[in-house]
Amino acid sequence: MSISTEVLRAASLMLVLACGRAPAPAPSPPVPEPSEAALKAELALARTPQVYLVLDLARREISVRSRGREFGALHVEDVAFERWHPPLGGRGAAPPPALPLAVKVVGDDPPRSLEAPELASLRPAGSTASESPPAAATPPPPNGAPLLSELPYWMPLDNGWRLYVDARPPLRGPGGRWIDTVAYLFTRLSGRSARQPDRLVVVVSPADADWLRHLLRPGRPLLIY
């Protein structure tokens, strides 16, 4: 064969390969829609003038809503339901809770800083008007944000559970068991109640954990489905 034929053949082959399509990526599985029971539960909340949280297990997110409208959402890495088994106690996996589940946050507001001026230090109003700018013109201290909890933190729920929030899953296996048991023994030795409520473990990013702590106001409903 002549060189030109070989070159032509090679060019044709390259053209065919270049026109060939890459295999299409596999379509992502559809995210399940809320069930009828979940929608009914949310409708009951949406009929009230309150802000509520929705933990959507299918979408792996916690969204803040009111009147059925979503205002924002944070991604959840993992959600687990756990039950404590004391040393030498029974074993067996905790049965998953029935869903949808509507609970309320029971815990306290985030810790705050308290200013408490002394009575003796208060001067009559307007006494320093000529010396300093009026109160309204004095800028407030910029770092007045409430102090938020360190990770992990937990909030009690009105069904007796705890909402346990961390940036990484709890340690499993012998190491985790060792830590949990030692902590449990310390609790017993210190005279505190050894009852460990069931807990809902939520794993989020540190930034979202901070935001979530802000959203977990006492009395705020949390719908899980």
């Binding site: 339901f81 088994h85 998953p96």
Partner: peptide, 24 residues
């Protein structure tokens, strides 16, 4: 020291997933 790791208390459970997806 190893006893708690072997026969100590433990949290048992697992990841929660959505139940009753619609349309399947």
């Amino acid at each position: 020291l190893a006893l708690p790791a072997v026969s100590g208390g433990t949290w048992s459970g697992g990841s929660l997933h959505s139940t009753g997806p619609v349309g399947e």
